[in-house]
Amino acid sequence: MSVRDATLEDIPELVRLREVLADRMAQDGSYPLEEEWREAYAASLGERLGSPDTAVYVVDAPTKGLAACGIGLIFERFPGPSLPDGRYGYVQGMTTDPGHRRRGHGRAIIGALLEWYRDSGVRRVDLHATSDAEPLYRQFGFVDDGYPSLTWRSRS
């Protein structure tokens, strides 16, 4: 198994895997699912693949398609005492196809993403985990940061 950078040709599979993740996340919590997200997601992937603030890593399935994927994003906010350069990372869309789980794909992808963050000088990375994946992330050193995670959503 090898982790590689995603290409434009992978976008349909990346959208499929994101849908797998959305279905799984809905089991753990109640967040609203919008109907018309697939086209916007595909377009955004097309725009961001290869940009210096985005890493999209995949593992190919043995036959065809993708077995797993993960996305790393780098954001910038104002510098502060705990984030002197203001840059932080966010891992999004870590997904393994149900038929390919428990084979180390997620471990390989999160390892590659953390290496990319280190090479990019990013010192803080956040993510949201499903209950299935939380033990894996904790093995890589992800911890509760002591602050509650709060979210605001517009009602309109």
Rank of each mutant, 00 (worst) to 15 (best):
Met1Gly: 12
Ser2Asp: 15
Asp5Gln: 15
Ala6Leu: 06
Thr7Asp: 08
Leu8Lys: 10
Glu9Ile: 00
Glu13Leu: 11
Arg18Thr: 13
Leu21Cys: 01
Leu21Asp: 06
Ala26Gly: 13
Gln27Thr: 15
Gln27Ile: 13
Asp28Pro: 03
Ser30Arg: 09
Pro32Asp: 08
Pro32Thr: 08
Leu33Pro: 00
Glu34Tyr: 09
Glu35His: 10
Ala40Trp: 11
Tyr41Thr: 15
Ala42Ile: 02
Ala42Asp: 06
Ala42Arg: 10
Ala43Ile: 06
Ala43Arg: 15
Ala43His: 12
Ser44Thr: 10
Glu47Gln: 14
Arg48Phe: 12
Gly50Ala: 03
Ser51His: 09
Pro52Ser: 13
Pro52Glu: 15
Asp53Met: 06
Asp53Tyr: 11
Ala55Thr: 04
Ala55Cys: 09
Tyr57His: 14
Val58Thr: 11
Ala61Trp: 13
Gly65Asn: 12
Leu66Phe: 07
Leu66Val: 07
Ala67Cys: 09
Ala68Val: 11
Ala68Leu: 07
Ile71Tyr: 12
Ile74Asn: 01
Arg77Asp: 14
Phe78Tyr: 12
Pro81Ile: 15
Ser82Met: 10
Ser82Gly: 07
Leu83Glu: 09
Leu83Gln: 12
Pro84Lys: 07
Arg87Val: 04
Tyr90Ala: 01
Val91Leu: 13
Gly93Arg: 02
Gly93Val: 01
Met94Gly: 11
Met94Tyr: 01
Thr95Tyr: 00
Thr95Leu: 00
Asp97Trp: 05
Asp97Asn: 13
His100Gly: 04
Arg103Val: 01
Arg103His: 13
His105Cys: 12
Arg107Gly: 05
Ala108Val: 02
Ile110Tyr: 04
Ala112Lys: 13
Ala112Ile: 04
Ala112Leu: 02
Trp116Gln: 13
Trp116Thr: 06
Trp116Lys: 06
Ser120Pro: 03
Arg124Val: 12
Val125Leu: 09
Asp126Tyr: 15
Thr130Pro: 09
Ser131Thr: 15
Ser131Arg: 14
Ser131Gly: 08
Asp132Cys: 01
Asp132Thr: 14
Pro135Asp: 04
Gln139Ile: 00
Gln139Trp: 00
Phe140Met: 04
Phe142Ala: 02
Val143Glu: 11
Asp144Lys: 06
Asp145Ala: 11
Gly146Pro: 03
Pro148Ser: 05
Leu150Ala: 00
Trp152Arg: 15
Arg153Phe: 08
Arg155Lys: 13
Arg155Gly: 10
Ser156Gln: 12
